[in-house]
Amino acid sequence: MGVQGIIGRKVGMTQIYGENGAAIPATVIEAGPCVVIQRKTAAKDGYEAAKLGLVAKSKVKRISRSVKQCYEKIGLPPCRVSREIRVDADAEFQVGDRIAVDMFTPGDSVNITGVSKGKGFQGVIRRHGFSGGAKSHGSMFHRAPGSIGASAYPSRVLKGMKAAGHMGDARITVGNLKVERIDVENNLLIVRGAVPGAAGGYLIIIRKSGAPLKG
């Protein structure tokens, strides 16, 4: 079993038609091609992982010397985006291996991780789904959080209390998305449903364990 994931870029959403003519909401992802730029091992790094780099479409010009030398050492052109993916200790792969969309087959189930759209400072209703009070009929309780604890005991606010604050712009994983189509030639992956973040955002796509392997 090799590396079970790939780096992608969200292109946007559209709809495609299934066999019975039903419209399927779909996200288009430009996935890969990627190269393995480092193998992390439990012995050396404390955990098992593969560091993938998204192959840059144009030459990476501005780059720090330390990063540049890392790529020179493995003899690959530098990448702009890199992500780590956990692998099993006995996974078969090497630094320099190429990973492309053909690792997936339509029907596969994948988990997709990305950074969600920032929503700014949001109240408790939008951020945590509180119900709020009535708008009228004499109600004086509208969108406030309500009581956040008792007085004499514990005389403090418990940690982790749901409150208003910054929402979004967080790392989110959406599980169990179905691969609808792949386009190997254009490195496109089409999955059913929505994926975190805005168009142009980078994603990590990981095949769900237990899904049938190809080849």
Partner: peptide
Amino acid sequence: MNPMERVEAGDI
């Protein structure tokens, strides 16, 4: 053709 048009082209 951008990637989105490419995907939709098959369904048009």
